[in-house]
Design a protein around this nucleic acid. Sequence first.
RNA 1: GCCGGAGUAGCUCAAUGGCAGAGCAAUGCUUUCGUAAAGCAAAGACGGAGGUUCGAUUCCUCUCUCCGGCUCCA
Length: 529
Amino acid sequence: MVNLDNVRHSLAHLLAAAVLKKFPKAQLGIGPVIQDGFYYDFKLPRTLTPADLADFENEMRDLIGAELAFRGKKVKPAEAKKIFKHQPFKLDLIKDFTKEKKSLTIYRTGDVFLDLCRGGHVKNTKEINPRAFKLTHIAGAYWKGDAKNPQLQRIYGLAFAAEKELNGYLKMQEEAKKRDHKILGPALDLFAFSDLVGAGLPLWTPKGTLLRNILDDFVWELREKYGYQKVEIPHITKKDLYEKSGHWEKFQEDLFKIKTREGHLFAMKPMNCPHHTQIYARRPWSYRELPQRYANTTMCYRDEQTGELSGLSRARSFTQDDAHVFCRLPQAKEEFLKIWDIVHEFYSKFGFNLRIRVSTHDPKHPEKYLGDRKKWAFAEKMLQAIVKDKKTDTFPGVGEAAFYGPKLDFMAKDSLGREWQVATIQLDVNMPERFDLTCMNEKGKPERIVMIHAAIMGSLERFLSIIIEHYAGDFPAWLAPQQVAILPISENQKSYALAVARQTTLWANASAKPNSRKYPISWFWATRR
RNA sequence: GCCGGAGUAGCUCAAUGGCAGAGCAAUGCUUUCGUAAAGCAAAGACGGAGGUUCGAUUCCUCUCUCCGGCUCCA
């Protein structure tokens, strides 16, 4: 059995060989294996076109047919530098590896190609199925993934063991494209975009709004049981609030700013925690009154880079089903577990399997976070204890913490196999400090409280994008914004059809609980069907 | 923001430096016809601004929007 990763990695080398044949002066970046295939980065004298990809593919097939052997050997840094003296990116890598005291290996493919590479190849190109790979697209990519570095041209390729798998994969992608929420959403009349309103600002239709409300009501039903109270906040604030929270320093660039006629600077809210702290801070609290649990489904605004916008997955205006619990330290665990229950109850209704990431800070970059080392150690230890107690499988996410605290992130997979972060529970010992949030304890002394951030859907927009694709637009009855349609065959049934529609609506409304949804009945004119 | 691709009617697509063409949908009329598209008619578009040109949807510049990536994501 051939190792597929070795095949993919070898194909990356063959791609580089093909590119070098056409562009002898090409500078090589790296060419690793990725999910479903491989890529290779190049700096080239001109921009590639799809026609180039066909040429490269043909050349690669020729190389496969030539039955070339892959051979690796260790080299000394000085030797490596000599070999790659015309390859600045390789020299950069050699420098890094030498600094990290890694050994250097080179791999030779027949006598057509030589690359600095840690290995993982087929023995001979004849092990590669020439019909089971395909170069798919060209993209720009920064050297070493850093926007400050030069940008290279990346060629992506798919590769499988058998042609059948490749075709199956391509078919699956086509299928996934049909489920694309950016196409299905407007087709189902759930939302729309307008060039006049602007990029990344979805507009919600009556049906889409109904769907949003059904979801939000569901979350609220679950929260209400645990003693949450709804609050409401303005969507703008003086910049002072964010200076105090630390968001200004960190996310200034991403805020929509507003200058008042008197010259004061305001900002659209990019999240809700600072506002909510001020609801808590409105008066002193006795420890007997804690926890205070505030829930608020509300829109936030972030000035995202245009290139990052994508349908509902990444928008400039999005709705968080946000909640904040203000409680004493010993109460935090119980509150955490309650939210965890809500998350599970909610997601099980959709048939999602969740993976849970324990997101902690990156010890190599303490400057990215608020608060001191001790606070973080404390909060992360507490989070780990809760997770351990819960006896659930989790995986670590070092460097994935919020800048104010560690968090549990719940990830759901969509129909394309992409994993999206959905719910999040965050433990925050920094905001309460910054805003001096306390309660009066048993001894009559002010005591610092902690704050828990909890979003169940995360962003309603992103959650909707996920379930539209998850269900391919075919929502379960309890979610479907339109559940019943009455279709008269000809005009003769018009009045009867209308009467049925009226009656059914009355019946549905009467049997619904007072604050549950109303069932919309549409009436279609269908004489031509 | 960066690299690349693309914007023609509600949707899917075509053509062109000299009157922009079709299918489906929608509209009107005809048909009243029962299980995967009845007939006829009329209507509907070159994303926006500027430039080159006798003339620009076509060529150039800028801009907006979308797509594939990269970077970013409280």
